[in-house]
């Protein structure tokens, strides 16, 4: 009995220590990335390519996610609000729900699914095929060439994607509310604009920037620390997406507290 208990406690201890060690390693990795970000050489072509891949090519999936979420949100609020005669709050709740929470979180998670996985798989494959070693022998620092452009591109483009997602989500709610639920289009827009405050929008964009950094950083970190072979690449990709998604949700909780509870 004592042996079983010791085994369970030992397992918990090992997991916690492993988690703390990983947090430490990711923090060091972030510090190294920031340090390389401000020191030349810079790789503008790789940065441009990362802007295109992370930002522009993510627009369709972000737009589709936002429009369906905004529409569903309008339907839910209308149905829920009707239980206590509060159907009229649909524009306000859709706006605040999309801008403060659903826009940044859903865009962050979609970026984790689309961008983190692709970065992790690409860099892990480069590692197992010795392309990272080849970079070093060609006098090119892998952090500067692979990590910095991707993290910087995510820092810039994900807030923009979140802004676009917020707008499209609100338009999704607008379409459903005015098309199916009988809301007046002009009044819907006026209520939305009047209700939103600058802090709502700022919090949304700041969350986007933080989520973008998390998504790109975890992709790069897992890729660079990948194990050998196809299995190593698979594990790196899976752990990158898992870690990015959990960290995005945790960061969202913390940032919501910072912006709206203090």
């Amino acid at each position: 009995m004592t042996g079983v208990l010791t085994g369970i406690l030992g397992g918990i201890g090992a997991t916690v220590l492993g988690l703390l060690a990983m947090i430490g390693r990711v923090t060091i990795f972030l510090g190294q990335t920031l340090s390389h970000m401000v020191r030349p050489p810079f790789y503008p072509r790789e940065f441009g390519s990362a802007l295109l891949t992370i930002g522009w090519l993510s627009l369709p999936v972000v737009g589709l996610t936002a429009i369906f979420t905004g529409g569903a949100l309008a339907l839910q609020i209308y149905a829920g609000g009707s239980r206590f005669d509060a159907e009229a709050v649909v524009p306000q709740i859709v706006a605040i729900g999309m801008v403060r929470e659903l826009g940044p979180v859903l865009v962050g998670l979609m970026i984790a699914a689309r961008v983190t996985s692709s970065i992790a798989a690409e860099i892990a494959t480069m590692k197992v095929t010795e392309q990272i070693d080849a970079l070093v022998t060609l006098s090119t620092h892998p952090m500067k060439y692979l990590t910095v452009p991707r993290v910087l591109a995510a820092l810039i483009t994900v807030p923009v994607l979140v802004g676009v997602g917020d707008v499209i989500g609100i338009l999704g709610g607008y379409q459903v509310a005015t098309g199916q639920l009988g809301f007046n289009p002009a009044a819907y827009l006026k209520n939305t604009i009047d209700f939103l405050e600058p802090l709502d929008v700022i919090s949304s964009l700041v969350k986007g920037a933080v989520f973008g950094v998390i998504a790109a950083l975890m992709g790069c970190y897992s890729g660079m620390n990948s194990g050998r072979g196809a299995q190593g690449v698979g594990r790196a990709t899976k752990s990158a997406v898992e870690a990015a998604a959990v960290m995005i949700l945790a960061a969202n909780f913390l940032l919501t507290g910072v912006f709206f509870s203090l």
Binding site: M126, T129, E130, Q131, D133, A134, V136, T137, S139
Partner: peptide
């Protein structure tokens, strides 16, 4: 490093 060239086993082409 500029003084070296290396041919990798699997090529390691980008």
């Amino acid at each position: 490093l500029a003084r070296f060239g290396m041919l990798f086993q699997g090529g390691a082409l980008f």
